[in-house]
Nucleic acid binder design. Structure first.
Lengths: 187, 187
DNA sequence: CGATTTATATACAGACCTGTCTGTTTTGTC
DNA sequence: GACAAAACAGACAGGTCTGTATATAAATCG
């Protein structure tokens, strides 16, 4: 299999980046954890930054697919699906290996806005916003853009508070607040 | 002056940590930028982590003092002061050197919840929440704790969106959303 | 089977990291 | 001016980092 080594490398790298950060995770640790030789890695990725980008891309796919699949399975109406976002966050926060949003963390380490890693994080947030906006529009909100912005802020805030303050109920607080916004938007 | 070197070191370190991150900022760079000798630094701080803690402590003081002074000068009623928080955030986001919340960034690099650096970030957030809670109580909100939580989530979300997505209007979106929460809380 | 790709182990370069050590110079105070 | 505290410069140790080079072994495929 041509890409199995590559896939395994990306999975291992993503796990270590999430747990220990990007600068703190050296190439050698990723190689040792994955059992892949250094030259193999540098054949697939021409630098560490490219490996980071690949790991972020995988994380984006995993996160959004998991979110959408879970929500569309558990809730049927747009309104219920909006609220299900916060239940999904709650499940995520409760996982033992929770270390916050990897994209927020990446932005912390690569603050320059023209950095490709920072740009990848921005793109992820844009896609998440798009999903929320689709839901607020489908729900028939008065101002779907304003509502989607408010919901997105609550969700991001909950992720931050869950990680920084270890407040696992941040998702519950966000959900209860979201209900106020929904009522105001006529949803 | 006994502590002027120490102060200068902390200021320089804080600036570099904010701009480039914690792991990416080496001791040598801080020393070169501050013009302080290495042994002087290690006389004041027994490790880099202690310097980081001192820098975070200074940032906490600077941020909260700046926030409270500005708000109490510009707004008089509890309600206006709550909304002034978001104006303050807007001014902050608009600054050229804006690199997000240093405490969120620190948590990204020091994810373990028992890490003293992570704990310092949690304490900062706790103090900020306390300030917001005092305002919601003074404003006579129906459920001041719930309102303060909602407002705090909006504020944290705005900081994240402003940094990750470069969305400078995140503070405006948060403010408009906050007004909905205030109305709901009878403020 | 033979040829080509793919992955392996390992050593290396050059830079950077934190923290220590030694000795000198500056500074502040009596 | 004498003395002590503070800051200085700069070398050093021991480790880590990214990325490259080399030479060998395994797997794939016509």
């Amino acid at each position: 299999m041509a890409s199995s080594k590559r896939d395994h490398l990306v999975d291992t790298a993503l796990d270590l980046f999430c747990r220990h950060g990007f600068h703190a995770t050296g190439i050698d640790k990723i190689l040792a954890a994955s059992g892949v030789a250094k030259m193999t890695m540098y054949k697939h990725f021409k630098s560490k930054d490219e490996l980071i980008l690949a790991a972020l891309h995988r994380n984006d796919e995993k996160f959004r697919n998991g979110l959408m699949r879970d929500i569309e399975r558990k809730a049927k109406t747009p309104r219920d699906r909006i609220l299900a976002i916060f239940d999904y966050l709650g499940d995520w926060f409760a996982k033992s290996g929770f270390t916050g949003c990897t994209f927020i963390n990446a932005t912390a380490e690569y603050a320059a806005s023209d950095n490709p890693i920072h740009a990848a994080a921005a793109e992820h947030k844009r896609l998440i916003y798009g999903y929320i906006f689709d839901l607020t529009k489908a729900a028939g909100a008065k101002d779907p853009d304003a509502l989607a912005n408010g919901l997105a802020l609550l969700a991001e805030g909950a992720v931050v508070m869950a990680h920084v303050s270890g407040n696992k109920d941040a998702s519950g607080q966000a959900k209860r607040t979201a209900e106020i916004l929904l009522a105001d938007a006529g949803v």
